[in-house]
Design a binder for these strands. Sequence first.
RNA 1: GACCCCAUCGUCUAGUGGCCUAGGACAUCGGCCUUUCACGCCGAAAACACGGGUUCGAGUCCCGUUGGGGUCGCCA
Length: 462
Amino acid sequence: MTKPIITRFAPSPTGYLHVGGARTALFNMLFARHFDGLFLLRIEDTDHKRSSREAIDAIVDGLDWLGLSPDKKPVFQSMNLARHAQIAKKLLNEGKAYLCFCSAEELAEMREKALAEKRSPKYDGRWRNRDPKNAPAGVSPVVRFKAPQDGHLLLNDLVQGEIRVANEELDDMVLLRADGSPTYMLSVVVDDHDMQITHVIRGDDHLTNAFRQIMLFNALGWSPPNYAHIPLIHASDGNKLSKRHGALGIEAYKDLGYLPEALLNYLARLGWSHGDDEVFSLTEAISWFDGSNINKSAARLDLNKLNSINAHYIKNINFDRFMRILTQRKEVPPHAIDRLNRGLPGLLNRSKTLNELTEKAAIYLENRPLKYTKESLALVSVEDKINMKELSFVFNGLDGWDQKMIEENIRYFAERKGIKLGEIARPLRIALTGFTSSFSIFELSFALGKKEVLARINDFVT
RNA sequence: GACCCCAUCGUCUAGUGGCCUAGGACAUCGGCCUUUCACGCCGAAAACACGGGUUCGAGUCCCGUUGGGGUCGCCA
């Protein structure tokens, strides 16, 4: 038996779940499922000051909405603080870490000096071999990792390939803060180990962290997980995605009227590909997603494409789901239900987002008498009204009411009057909707129902 | 600044040395369909960043340039 694949999505709860995070979660989930493994969620809340309950809820709810809920209860990193600190102490005892008494000012100075000398601004290891007895009074020390200084580290990244970094580029990172709390770098390593994470799939911005983390794994005698650093998502103009710039929370996409499966499909296609496949189900994605074919370069967010994928999924919405969506957004009078049911195909065909869908559905929700726009009425002549009146007699005499029958009768009516279909269609459209453009009048008439059509025409001509 | 990463149509991408006269999707433009609006269908325009190698042959391999991105916290 080989070890099961375990992945994790590890956001810090300092804000909402954004698209980049959602895609990272997706990739982790896809990969785990593909190998019949586990997908876990770990909330990285070791920074109390910046973490919030609201952010945690936003992340969990966002994942839930997308259908990316983890296979187990989320792990809260803050619950493992004692364990992390204990590991740091162990390193300290083994001489693999040391106490550093540098003040914040001292560190800042060090950085500025390095920058001024055009060197990499890193900690110079001044307390590496100094006796703690020489410590200045009143300074509580941090614990720093005694990082290897010679040689290099080789990372075989699943996405980026082989990357080599000289150890001298990495400085002695802080493991334990002056108040005794563990830093991110320590916590991640310990938790990834304890949770038996086999594959860390995360944003590109963590690439250099991987080297520091591997150092720690090595010092602890643990074997590091596999790493896959996926490129970041940029805003549509190529700039970095930020809160001020295009980075909306996942719930914003929900409010904008995107379907979760559409967003997922779009996100999966951003940076990953399976040949020329564009629209595919989650199940298909899972069967295809084995960690290969992930792009190395950053991708831009493109709402046009999202819209088009969303439109595709909207076409597959059934009536029950449609009603759930609609009633969440609008008051639906009982008399409208049958009309909506009949008019659904036309509604779905014409909407790229749920918001559009809801707006378009309004035509079936409205109560008589309709309001006609000035532009509409300007196009209506006395003859038009006479024609409508006559058409209503035709409708009234109809035995039955389906789209085909309606179409045939309207066409025949126009033919008999010796006028073009458009001459009937235009006023009828205005009579039924109040607007100059709408769906097919045949479709509309059918969906509205005979009684309502007759009533609306009557409103219109009188 | 140092280190690391990246680079195919406007955008997302296919491409793993000959199948590439570079394919698909979105967007754009034109046409068809047609009662308007959509949908759908057909078609067009549109890219290998640049310069050197390697090779019989390079979008594909190597080097450099340029451009973009990331990291360099007692944040994660």
